[in-house]
Design a protein around this nucleic acid. Structure first.
Lengths: 94, 94
DNA sequence: AGGATAGGCAAGCGACTACTTGCCTATCAA
DNA sequence: TTGATAGGCAAGTAGTCGCTTGCCTATCCT
């Protein structure tokens, strides 16, 4: 569970999740391209690869290898643990 | 929104939220005590105070001062932004 | 086979973070 | 007023994180 929060604590990784939700099953190079074009993220391919590794380790991204390409899919399953641990409602200062 | 993820990316801060959910409106010293007794957290009072400041800056904790005491209340409002940004459902690897 | 494409591994560096230490302010009780 | 309680401020330090750089492996196409 700590991996999920660590993975979410980075703007680039959050943007990657956004792009995977918008278009699922992208490759590393596709993600690099869309991060540069739609957001001003100017990171190297290795940086994005490491981000994807963190997201995959957290279970937020599932990969599927076909040939020399690796497709990345979003998985929001681990997110349910957050609102299951703490109520997402307001406070109660009596 | 980045403050929320940064605040959640720490086990001690997550434990603090747990304890505030279990018993709302605790003071700094009470939180220090319960962190030591119920979990093996051996941090100084200042460390916990800094954690509470991070949680408060993220809006996850709301404080209320009365006299020389400061009471801390959990607020799960910022958590709704998480599942509103990404679907908390499973993947779809077609 | 040879080049091009898609991705992986690992070391090094700068910045940030959690934590401690030391001292200070404010409130309450005797 | 004096002491004790509850908390705040700031500097220093060790460890972690994001990123780059350089090189390597695997797959596809001609």
């Amino acid at each position: 569970m700590a991996d999920v929060f660590r993975a979410l604590d980075d703007e680039t990784r959050r943007l990657i999740l956004d792009e995977l939700v918008a278009r699922n099953g992208q490759t590393l190079f596709e993600i690099c391209g869309v991060l540069v074009s739609r957001h001003g993220v100017s990171s190297t391919r290795q940086a994005i690869s490491q981000h994807l590794a963190v997201l995959e380790e957290a279970g937020l991204v599932v990969t599927e290898r076909r040939g020399r390409s690796k497709f990345h899919y979003f998985d929001g399953g681990p997110l349910t643990a957050i609102t299951r641990r703490w109520p997402a409602t307001g406070r109660d200062p009596s």
